[in-house]
Amino acid sequence: MLDKIISRRTSEIAEGFEVGRILPSRHQRMVGPFIFLDHMGPLDVEVGASLDLDVKPHPHIGLSTVTYLFSGAITHRDSLGVEQEIQPGEVNWMVAGRGITHSERMEYGRRQGMTLHGLQAWVALPTEFEEVEPAFHHFAREELPGFQSDGMVAKLIAGAFEGFRSPVPIHSPLFYVHMEMEPDASYQVNSEYSEQAVYIVSGQVELVDGTKLDAGQMGILKQKSLTSLHATQKTTLVLFGGEPVGERFIHWNFVSSSKERLEKAKDDWRHQRMKLPDGDDQAYVPLPER
């Protein structure tokens, strides 16, 4: 059963690049350690598209960013010297820890055109890991465990779920699953974690009580309950959640259990004390003062 339903809202992350923001919401700040979820696209990027579509260098602290695409490609560069293009079904997992900067550019689409479609999530780090050394991990689609049932195919992006475990290194108990369901397929979600949610990327699912979740809606699952999802049409969704890590504060791209730490991060970025990505240090996103 569902505890509540939350609909995405529009937010612009670069000029002409709007996303659907699901977390955080005034109705739900976090789901387990997940503190942020953006639905990117579908966005058509034409050959020679404007550089304004790119997300220029910007900083993070206290979290891991998780990028997962259904179509298109993004070029990632960071202050560790990593350059990595992510393709559909792959995972870019960046641990910000004490501080990292990165950019996300549409270079693939600018060369040959594409439809960008995917999700980006932030996972808050437990207090004891908030200041770890930054790191970056990339996993090809064939490295991620998958499972299936009648009319359903799933890929475990991160964490542990239904006896499977992703190779992605995590810092607290969580799960993140991409699921494709054919019309009339059903799947029963067992309550393995304290907090769980389902987000409908496309299509529609119906619960046993008749409640329907449409594309762009997130359903928060009730604790300690079984939830059966029935696809009324071809549906793409993600299941995610985990164990809470405690209260977190957010300012812009910074996440921390300490407001004082957020102020330090703001000051560091304002005065450019954070190294910019290698090979991408000619421009950056300034600190929003509001």
Rank of each mutant, 00 (worst) to 15 (best):
S7Y: 07
H271C: 07
G210P: 02
R165S: 08
W93H: 01
L125H: 05
R8E: 14
E180Q: 14
F147M: 11
T227W: 02
A197F: 15
A265H: 08
K234M: 12
P57K: 06
Q188M: 13
F249P: 03
L226T: 10
G32S: 09
R111L: 07
G159P: 03
R105D: 06
V95F: 07
Q204Y: 07
L69S: 04
D44E: 12
G163M: 09
Q148K: 11
P244T: 13
A135C: 04
S103L: 11
G32Y: 14
E289I: 03
L237W: 00
T75R: 14
E142P: 08
E85P: 04
V177G: 04
L213D: 04
L43Y: 08
R110D: 10
L37E: 02
L23F: 13
G81I: 07
A73R: 06
M274L: 15
Y176F: 15
Q272E: 15
W122Y: 13
V285I: 13
K56Q: 01
S186N: 01
G279D: 03
M179P: 09
M30F: 14
L63W: 15
E247Y: 12
Q282R: 08
E133Q: 10
Q188A: 09
P277N: 01
P286K: 05
N253I: 12
E143H: 05
E18K: 09
N190A: 14
S166E: 02
R105L: 04
Q204D: 06
L63A: 12
H137N: 09
R29K: 15
V123G: 06
S50H: 02
G62S: 03
D281Y: 12
G163N: 06
P126Y: 12
T75H: 02
F147P: 09
E192A: 14
L119A: 04
E128V: 12
R261V: 11
M40I: 11
Y108A: 00
E130Q: 14
I100S: 09
V82Y: 05
F175I: 10
S194K: 02
L287W: 15
A121T: 01
E85H: 08
E104G: 06
G242F: 10
P42V: 08
Q112P: 05
G219A: 12
W252M: 08
P57C: 02
L2D: 08
F136A: 00
R21G: 00
S103V: 10
G72R: 00
I157E: 14
P134V: 00
G97M: 11
E130S: 11
S25D: 14
E107H: 04
K222N: 04
H171M: 04
F240M: 02
G203E: 05
F254D: 01
K264C: 11
F36A: 00
M30P: 01
G16R: 01
R273K: 13
E247M: 09
T227S: 01
S103T: 10
L125M: 10
S257A: 15
V255E: 07
I157D: 08
K224P: 04
M40S: 00
Y68L: 10
S166N: 00
F164T: 03
I35Y: 14
E243S: 09
E46M: 08
F147V: 08
A158R: 01
T211E: 13
K155M: 12
T232M: 09
E263V: 03
L144D: 12
L119P: 03
